[in-house]
Amino acid sequence: MKFTDEDLRKITLAAINELGDKASPELVKKVVSKAVEGYGIDKQFQSNNEKASGRVILTAFGLNKPGIIAGLTKALGDANCDIQDLSQKIMSDFFTVIMVVDISGSNKDLRELQDSMNRIAEELKIKVFIQHEDVFRFMHRI
């Protein structure tokens, strides 16, 4: 929960009204900061929510060899990501894999996921890109 200045002003006014004659600047300050702190739990929720934001598109390219899909899907499974769609193409020695992955249930955010994918990419000598679905939606859909 984030407070804008306007919110804080309203809270302060409400506190002054409530306190009536007792309202001294020190008391109001104390009451307001205590009330605002109470939203700590909300804050926690907010940041969790931020981590889990919808679907991402995962794209992988490289020279074909056994174990690529296995490597990618294992890492996604470990991170509690849900693969909703998967398509792949193989052109002679090269492969391309595109996945639509729901990361809302994941304990990792996009950057952490990208980091673990980079490690796999290095091991398998392939390239893996992850981008938020919104980017594709904005660019290609009106």
Partner: peptide
């Protein structure tokens, strides 16, 4: 797939 292969690439 909600997006075309080409769009993603």
């Amino acid at each position: 797939m909600p997006y075309e292969f080409d769009e993603i690439l």
